[in-house]
Amino acid sequence: MSPSDQHSTALDLPPHMRPERSFQGLILALQRFWADYGCVVLQPYDMEVGAGTFHPATTLRALGHKPWRAAYVQPSRRPGDGRYGENPNRLQHYYQFQVLLKPSPPDLQDLYLKSLAAIGVDAALHDVRFVEDDWESPTLGAWGLGWECWCDGMEVSQFTYFQQVCGIECSPVAGELTYGLERLAMYVQGVDNVYDLNFNGRDGDERISYGDVFLQAEQEYSRHNFEHVNTDILFQHFKDAEAECQALLSAGARQMEEAGDGIHKVVLPAYDQCIKASHVFNLLDARGVISVTERQSYILRVRDLSKACGEAFLQTDAGGAVAKESQNA
């Protein structure tokens, strides 16, 4: 359970796995660190999301009283941040490494600092700071207090004590860490352009850069997001996802009534539709076809969905509900 003692430092690794020369090495080091702490290391959620927080392993599992520890990489899409591959720092698709610990352990700050050490950030050499940042996600009806974590003036992580998610008070409070992987990697690899990151830690012909993997995608998706995306279809998708989410929640509630066990039957699929609505909204927003006033109402509509999903989740096993003796049996 104690990761620091036996856990391998960056120096024990073969060169191609070291975080300071390999993007994937950095990811693997973080996974190893949090696996040693007892987290379930999950894989990315198989849907388009704006941030690692949307993964049900964070949003939904932050609710209810059951303890939970998870760590995972999540590709995150911010359509409006696309720069056609021309900006060295901004991407419309990037990776977050997400850790959720419920309840938040008393030594979470120390754990975070140890995880930095594990990827080669030496606190005797670098200026690590916790700078106030109140986190809020209007679409998730969520907020928390915490910090931006700075390393030599660069924001490398978000550190949040969740107070509310899906409009529901967190009880107990979960601690969330979000590492900006590209930024961290650029820092430890000492490169100025994200596309120059060494992805696989190899040299010469074997070297694969971040640009080799993602540059074309950034260009194409920027065109897609800003020029080609069919907004009529998106508006329809939004409506469909919203209706489907509500319909699934009703169906699950109906089945709960029939079973009489107090356990909601269709929460996770409903939440997928909430995620979808949120992403479609981001795309529409990036296209600039949503006015300021409409924008607020779209945000509220997604929030209503996430709230309904969160409330339903509390009526499931993972949400901490215990099935009542079935009265219909």
Binding site: Q163, C170, S171, P172, V173
Partner: peptide, 11 residues
Amino acid sequence: PKSMRWGAGST
């Protein structure tokens, strides 16, 4: 101005 709960005791 703003305060928070944390940890296992926050229930």
